[in-house]
Amino acid sequence: MASTAACATLTLLTGCSLFGNKAPQVPQLSSADAYYNNGIDALRGRRYALAAAEFEILQQNYPYSGYTANAQLMEGYAYYLQSKYPEAAQQLDRFIELHPTSTDGAYAFYLLALCYYEQIGDVNRDQQMTAEAMSRLQDVIARFPQSKYARDAQLKIDLCRDHLAGKEMLVGRYYQQQRAYQGAIGRYQRVVQDFQTTNHVAEALERLVEVYLDLGLTGEARRTGIVLAYNYPGSKWYRFAYSDLKRYRLLEASTPKPGTTKGPPGAASQEETMSPAQSAARGIGRADAPASLTAAPVQPVSSQSLQSDGSTLTSNVAHQGVAQGTNGRPR
């Protein structure tokens, strides 16, 4: 026992002599503005993972800094640029909850909506994400009706509606092929009644003409053909319907030939809108950089010059001398 104690004492003394009787040094943290500058520089250099990490370190170590609120928003934007939409949404939800009166609220709500919008899948899949995206976009319009984000949100809502209508048409065509005509009629009628501004209405009317003819409902087929002629006289779908009605000898003297009548002002054409998947493929609809990347002062600013809630993105930091960023019938 005595020898064991002696060894322990000798080890302790030896350890103390190795450190020179001084405790190990702990690396010092950088300042809040340094972390924020690093994050901004990383965003400018498209090193989005590094940017998110810098903003996260700032929040963890300087929770009451004037930079913290902006760091929360910018971290969400960095995740968004990496297509890490769940992480971005979580960060943006946190920002909105902690800073409900922020002057950057409109952008935060808009970017949060885009996190759902970007996840909209093909019409062959479940459209729950489309419905969620519409709800979030409508939130932007309701809360910030006069903002530029509201105008863009309305456009994206129209694209979401077009996507939902496309889903209804997909199911309707399947029912029609299976001769489940009642189900097909229900899907096509929903497109006509609930998605009147989408580019699927002309096809839905033409499909209804087909189904009514198959069921022997010639009166319904003729009336639907007249509606199609009035609203989409130059579309291929009216040409198909006109051909079917002619084949069944259901044309009247007053039935217009394709392309000879003019629909009401604002009648949608087949190519006026794109689905979210189409717009994403063309690079349309992605969020622009927040103001911190396009309007940040060139000269560094101190945390004291920021608002207490850190809600003004135009007060963000940029290192001196760093250039500012830019930004036949289908069956």
Score class of each variant (00 low, 15 high):
residue 225 G to E: 00
residue 229 A to N: 09
residue 185 I to Q: 09
residue 198 T to E: 03
residue 180 A to E: 15
residue 187 R to I: 03
residue 233 P to K: 04
residue 210 E to Q: 14
residue 203 E to A: 10
residue 171 V to T: 13
residue 211 V to A: 09
residue 218 T to F: 04
residue 241 A to C: 00
residue 221 A to I: 06
residue 203 E to D: 13
residue 239 R to G: 10
residue 175 Y to G: 14
residue 170 L to Y: 11
residue 223 R to C: 07
residue 238 Y to H: 11
residue 184 A to P: 13
residue 192 V to A: 01
residue 183 G to M: 12
residue 187 R to A: 04
residue 230 Y to S: 12
residue 221 A to S: 01
residue 267 A to H: 05
residue 200 H to K: 08
residue 185 I to T: 11
residue 188 Y to E: 10
residue 212 Y to G: 11
residue 250 L to T: 07
residue 242 Y to N: 03
residue 171 V to R: 01
residue 239 R to A: 00
residue 220 E to K: 02
residue 215 L to E: 08
residue 170 L to V: 05
residue 268 A to P: 09
residue 260 T to Q: 07
residue 182 Q to R: 11
residue 252 E to D: 10
residue 236 K to P: 05
residue 218 T to Q: 09
residue 174 Y to M: 14
residue 191 V to S: 00
residue 190 R to L: 10
residue 235 S to Q: 12
residue 259 G to L: 00
residue 216 G to L: 07
residue 201 V to K: 02
residue 188 Y to D: 01
residue 241 A to Y: 01
residue 227 V to H: 09
residue 197 T to P: 08
residue 182 Q to S: 15
residue 174 Y to N: 02
residue 249 R to M: 07
residue 175 Y to D: 09
residue 203 E to Q: 15
residue 225 G to D: 04
residue 258 P to E: 00
residue 185 I to R: 12
residue 248 Y to E: 01
residue 176 Q to W: 05
residue 187 R to V: 06
residue 202 A to I: 15
residue 219 G to N: 10
residue 230 Y to R: 13
residue 255 T to A: 04
residue 223 R to I: 13
residue 193 Q to W: 06
residue 258 P to V: 00
residue 257 K to Y: 09
residue 208 L to F: 00
residue 240 F to N: 11
residue 266 G to S: 01
residue 207 R to Y: 03
residue 191 V to A: 02
residue 196 Q to D: 14
residue 242 Y to W: 11
residue 214 D to S: 11
residue 194 D to R: 08
residue 250 L to H: 14
residue 267 A to Y: 03
residue 237 W to F: 03
residue 216 G to P: 11
residue 203 E to N: 10
residue 254 S to K: 15
residue 242 Y to A: 03
residue 255 T to H: 05
residue 210 E to M: 07
residue 265 P to E: 08
residue 183 G to K: 06
residue 227 V to L: 15
residue 266 G to F: 07
residue 203 E to M: 01
residue 252 E to W: 09
residue 247 R to E: 10
residue 182 Q to L: 10
residue 261 T to P: 05
residue 256 P to H: 02
residue 217 L to I: 08
residue 256 P to W: 08
residue 227 V to K: 11
residue 261 T to L: 12
residue 188 Y to H: 00
residue 211 V to C: 14
residue 235 S to G: 11
residue 172 G to T: 14
residue 264 P to R: 12
residue 172 G to C: 15
residue 240 F to H: 15
residue 231 N to H: 13
residue 251 L to D: 03
residue 197 T to I: 10
residue 250 L to W: 10
residue 205 L to R: 02
residue 266 G to Y: 02
residue 212 Y to I: 08
residue 215 L to S: 14
residue 227 V to E: 10
residue 244 D to C: 08
residue 231 N to M: 12
residue 241 A to S: 01
residue 251 L to P: 05
